[in-house]
Amino acid sequence: MSTATDTPEATTAGPAPARKGGPGARARQEQVTAAGFLAPALILCGVLLYAPFLYTAYLSLTEFNGLGDPEFVGVAKYTELFDDPNIVQSMLNTVIWVVGTLVLPVGLGLLIAVLAHGLKGSFWYRLPFLLPYAISGIAVGVIFSFILQTNGALTQAMEFLHLPFADSRWLLDWPLNTFVMIAAATWQGAGVNALLFGVGLQSIPTEPIEAAKVDGATGWSLFKNITWPMLAPMTTVVVGLSIVGSLKTFDIVWGMTQGGPGRVSETLAITMYKQSFMLNDYGLGAAVALLLTVVTVGASLLYLRRQLAPAREF
């Protein structure tokens, strides 16, 4: 006989209120909040990085000696780049630096890492090659200029031992001066490349190496077909850093020859500095700086795109 009675909550409760927005609205709100926190840092980076680049691009289109107002001359400074034999020589030297630092510091670093890999206490074998990296480029230039200058330490040692080429003018004749400066850069940079390659070798799993040895692979065959392909990620890093560093070479050249004698051993970075701050031709200096920036970024992107293309295909 008894019937269920409705509770006050049951009789008065209506449909649940709809929530404002949804997951999409909350995600957008979080993005707006995150953008608000990131905005100051992005603005600061934009001001410190892009504003000077844009101003340099503007100066490259002007005639400006640091006094008065820049005079707009269009692309005249870029035309002058390729008409000036000193700047063309600087471009050639920069190319030699890129090739030389890929062959010597990278190649020697790889050789040191491979020979030391697997040896007990291999770190101590690499340490003597790593120590020069702690010395600044200017200091390296000063050290090697003392060794290689006319009647310097190397010449005197070669004359004492009656070795050939003792009368070579190491820092005075081109391209010999560029080659010996690359050798100085090799002395400084081979150790850090060996360290990086050593890290890459340690990250390679042992199973493929052991399987290849079981199949009879040894020595050069083992390195070429197994080790080298598996070392590709670290090789990409080392070669990429080498390309960027060689394109911007300044300190060792300045410490050894300052681009001389005359201007035969200048790199683009040295030319940019001299045109801007010694010859007061800020327009031409800015054009060299912009050319160097475009070449550096373009070479880096081209290399990385080529190296990473196989990874994207998978």
Rank of each mutant, 00 (worst) to 15 (best):
I204Y: 03
F223A: 03
E63D: 14
A39H: 03
Q149G: 13
L110K: 03
F179P: 00
A153H: 01
G137H: 08
D167R: 06
W170L: 01
T227K: 13
V244L: 10
T271S: 11
L111E: 00
M230A: 14
L304E: 03
D84C: 07
P40C: 09
L284H: 03
K213N: 14
N93H: 06
W220G: 01
S300V: 05
M234S: 08
L38H: 06
G283Q: 05
L304K: 00
T62M: 05
Q275H: 02
L81H: 01
A4K: 08
T235E: 02
R305A: 12
A157C: 05
T257D: 03
A76E: 15
S122Y: 07
G118H: 06
M230N: 15
T267I: 05
G152H: 10
T33N: 03
L268V: 03
V237M: 11
L104G: 04
D281N: 15
G100A: 07
P70H: 07
A57L: 15
E30D: 10
F129K: 11
H162Q: 13
V237F: 09
L108H: 05
L92H: 07
L290V: 15
G66Q: 04
R19Q: 12
A35R: 11
I112A: 11
R305C: 01
I252L: 15
E30I: 03
L308V: 11
L44W: 08
N280K: 05
G298K: 04
N225S: 14
A134W: 09
G198L: 06
T206K: 15
A185F: 12
A166L: 00
G152M: 11
V199K: 01
G191N: 04
L61F: 12
K248Y: 07
I135V: 15
F197T: 03
V75R: 05
T271I: 00
L81R: 00
V95T: 08
E30R: 12
Q188H: 07
S168Y: 10
P132Y: 04
G200T: 07
S221V: 13
V88H: 01
P15L: 14
A76S: 12
Q258H: 13
S265R: 06
G74Q: 10
A311H: 04
D84I: 02
F223V: 08
L38F: 15
E266C: 02
R306D: 01
K248N: 15
S122P: 06
Y50W: 12
P175E: 10
P164T: 08
V98I: 10
F82I: 14
L195M: 12
G46E: 05
L154M: 15
L308K: 09
G298I: 06
I43K: 07
T150W: 08
S2E: 11
T271V: 01
I87M: 09
V98Q: 08
L127R: 09
T235A: 12
G283T: 05
Y50R: 05
W254K: 07
P23A: 13
L148V: 04
F223H: 04
V106T: 13
Y303S: 01
F277T: 02
Q156V: 14
E313N: 04
I270H: 03
F314T: 12
S265N: 01
Y282A: 02
G68F: 09
L308G: 06
P164I: 12
D251S: 14
F53V: 14
W174Y: 13
F165W: 14
L110G: 02
A185M: 13
